[in-house]
Write a protein that binds this DNA or RNA. Structure first.
Lengths: 352, 352
DNA sequence: TTGACCGCCGCAATCGTTTGCGGTAGTGTT
DNA sequence: AACACTACCGCAAACGATTGCGGCGGTCAA
C-alpha cells in the first residue's frame, strides 16, 4: 500500500511545501551569507576541501539546513559548475539479461559516487547509436560507457567526453571486457577432452569483438588440440534466439554433422537446442552444446546448459568505477576478466 | 571501429570547439536579441506557441542556429523553467526481462516526447524504494513511474510528483497493468479443458497485486468449473527461479500430487520444471505447467512453456504515454491490458 | 486626423549555486 | 609597536535560458 503523504496537506513538520527552501533561505535562518552555506555543505560532503568555514559555524549551518529540509538544486549547480554528475550508457538492448546485469553493475558503482546514469537502447543500429550519442552530449553527460561498440563499421565518436567501453572492446579505447579468446579456448579444450572431433560454431555477428574473439580463441585452441574446424562449420548469426536457431539449422545439415556446437552466447545456444529438439535430436546426448555468459536460467533448463561464466555483474561495476576514476583524473587501466567454464548436462562425451 | 573525431582538432566546419555557442552567440550572429532567438527556437519545436517572431526572422534565426551548431543547455533551461523534462522509473530489477521490456516501452514513448528517463533498481526492498524516491525528487523529476508497488506493506509516497503505476496496481493510484484476474482465469479454464482435477499454484509474493490477482482469478474460475483447490495447494514464493523450485518441491510432496501447476510468472515456472526434472518427472507429460508473461525463451525451451501473454512492451509504452498525458494536463485513465494464453507442450492433457 | 488595437521584438529580472576576490580580525614575529 | 601572515567569511559576478512587461511601428475604424 502506497500512502500518498501529500494527500493531507495539514501541518507538515519540516517543509511548509509552499515556499522553496534554497541556499538563501538557509543562510538567512543561520545568520550567514549564502556562499558560506554553500561552502559548509560541500565541506561536509568532502572534508578535504580547503575553504571550509570554521567548525562551529559549519555544524550550525548543517543543523539549520536539515531542519529546514534543504535539498540542493542540481540544475543550478550544474549550470554553474559545468558538471552534470551524470554518465550516459549505451547498450544494445536492456531486455538482454547480460546487458541488464552489466547495467546494474554500472549503476551500483555510479550510485556509490553520487553519479546519476542515463541509459539508451541502440539495438546495435549505428544510426541510433549516433543519434543517442548526440542526445547524451546535449544532456551534457560527464562521461560515457558504451556496451555497443562495433568493430569494422564506422561509428563516429563526435564528443570529447571521456569514454569507457564495456563487454566489447575496440582498438584505441579504454575497455572493460571478458578475456574472450581465453573463454573460447576453454570451450575447445572441453570438447577435446570429451572426445569430440567434429565441431561447429554459431559465431554471432562479425562486428562484435566478443563474437570474433570467442571464435578466434575456439579456433586456435581446437587447432592446437589437433581438431579440424572447416570454415563451413563456422556460421555467422545474430545474438538472439532466432539467430541461434537458423545457424543451427545450417550446421545440422553439414556432412559430417558436428557432434559439438559452440554458440557465442546463451540465447543462440537456447535457440540451437530448440532447433535440435524439433529435429528429434537430444542436446547433451546426441550433440554437445556450450553457450556463453552463463545467464541465470541456463542451469535450470530441462537440459542444463553448459556455459562460460563471464561474471558480467562485476564487469559492470568495474566499468563504472573505471569511468569514475577517469573523471576524477586518476589513472585507469583496461580490465580483462577471466572466464570459467561451467560444464553441465548439455555437453556430454562423444559417442563411439 | 569507433573513430574519435576530436582526436584531430583540425578545421572543423560547424563548431570551433573552444568557445561555447550559446543563445547570445546566435543572437549576435543573427542580429537580434537573445530572447528573440529563444522564442524562435521554441516556436519551431511547438508551432502552437503564441509569441513567435515573424516568419522570416524565425527562419533566419533557425538557419543561423544550426549553422553555428547551437545546442540548448538543458540545465539552464530547467533552472529557469522548473521543469526537468525527465521522469523517474523505479523497478524491482532490470535483469528481469519482463521489467526490462516494460522499461524499453517507457523509454520509447518518453523519447517521443523529448523526456529523459532515469531508472533505479529497488529489488522490492521498501528501504531502497524510499531512498530512491527521495533521490528522484532531489533530481526534480517531473513525474514517476513505479513498477515496484507493494500492497499491504506501508510504502510512503512523500512527493507531490505525478505518479503512474505499471504492471502492479495499488488502490488510489493511476495504473497501467494486465487484467491479472482474467489471466489467472484463462489458466484455470485451460486446465479444466485438459481434464485436470488436482491443481497446484506457485503463488508468488503476497505483496504484489500481480500474484494476488492471478491467484484470485485462478481460484475463482477453477471453483466455477467445479475444481477443488485446497489452501495447501497454493504456496507462496518469490518471483525468481529459486522460489519456483522450492514451491514446486512443496507441491510435489502433496497427497494427492497435483497434475497441473500454475506458476504466476515464467521464472518460477522454469524453476518448477527444473525441480520436476530432478525428481524424474516430465513436465507436460506427467504434470502440466503454465507460467505467466510469455518471456521470449519460453517457446524455445526443450519443453516449450505454456504461458499467458501480457504484452509487456505495450504496457510500458502506455504507461509512459499516460504519465506524459498527465504531465501535459490531459485527462488520463487507468489501463487494463487483456491477456491471452499461449498453450504449448508444457501443458498436456490429464492422464486417465 | 486621432485614438485604439495588435503584432513583433528588446529589456532586464530571474531561477539557485558556485567561486574569485578582497576585507577584516586575529595571531605570531621581529 | 609595526608588520606579515593566516583563517574566515561576505560580496557580487557569473552560468544560460525564459518570460512578463513595455515600447514601437503599423493598421484600421470612427
Amino acid at each position: 500500500m502506497i500512502r500518498s503523504v501529500t494527500q493531507k496537506p495539514t501541518a507538515e513538520p519540516t517543509r511548509s511545501g509552499r515556499e522553496r527552501v534554497t541556499l538563501r533561505t538557509v543562510a538567512e535562518a543561520a545568520g550567514v551569507h549564502a556562499s558560506t552555506v554553500s561552502r559548509a555543505l560541500r565541506a561536509q560532503a568532502d572534508p578535504a576541501l580547503s575553504d571550509a568555514p570554521s567548525a562551529s559555524i559549519t555544524r550550525h549551518i548543517i543543523e539549520v539546513a536539515d531542519r529546514l529540509g534543504y535539498r540542493p538544486d542540481p540544475y543550478a549547480a550544474s549550470l554553474r559548475t559545468r558538471r552534470s554528475m551524470s554518465i550516459g550508457v549505451l547498450v544494445p538492448r536492456l531486455s538482454d539479461v547480460v546487458l541488464a546485469t552489466i547495467y546494474e553493475g554500472i549503476e551500483q558503482s555510479a550510485a556509490l559516487s553520487g553519479y546519476q546514469v542515463a541509459v539508451a537502447n541502440t539495438y546495435d543500429d549505428p544510426e541510433r547509436h549516433r543519434k543517442y550519442l548526440g542526445l547524451m552530449s546535449s544532456r551534457r553527460v560527464d562521461g560515457l560507457i558504451l556496451a555497443d561498440a562495433h568493430l569494422g563499421v564506422a561509428q563516429s565518436h563526435p564528443t570529447d567526453v571521456p569514454t569507457v567501453l564495456v563487454n566489447r572492446r575496440c582498438p584505441g579505447f579504454l575497455s572493460v571486457s571478458g578475456a574472450d579468446i581465453v573463454g573460447g579456448g576453454l570451450v575447445a579444450s572441453h570438447f577435446a577432452d570429451l572426445g569430440h572431433d567434429h565441431l561447429g560454431v554459431i559465431a554471432g555477428p562479425t562486428w562484435a569483438s566478443t563474437s570474433i574473439d570467442r571464435v578466434t580463441g575456439f579456433r586456435e585452441t581446437s587447432r592446437a588440440r589437433g581438431l579440424d574446424l572447416p570454415d563451413s562449420a563456422v556460421v555467422a548469426s545474430s545474438f538472439d534466439v532466432e539467430g541461434g536457431r537458423e545457424a543451427a539449422r545450417r550446421l545440422l545439415a553439414l556432412e559430417p554433422r558436428p557432434t559439438a556446437i559452440f554458440a557465442v552466447n546463451d540465447y543462440a545456444a537456447i535457440g540451437a537446442m530448440g532447433e535440435m529438439r524439433d529435429q528429434g535430436l537430444m542436446p547433451g546426448a546426441d550433440i554437445a552444446v556450450v553457450g556463453y555468459n552463463d545467464i541465470n536460467i541456463a542451469r535450470e533448463l530441462l537440459c542444463p546448459l553448459s556455459s562460460v561464466d563471464n561474471s558480467v555483474i562485476s564487469m559492470g561495476r568495474i566499468a563504472g568505477q573505471t569511468l569514475i576514476d577517469v573523471l576524477a583524473g586518476k589513472p585507469a587501466a583496461p580490465t580483462l576478466i577471466t572466464p570459467s567454464l561451467k560444464a553441465r548436462q548439455s555437453s556430454g562425451p562423444a559417442r563411439r
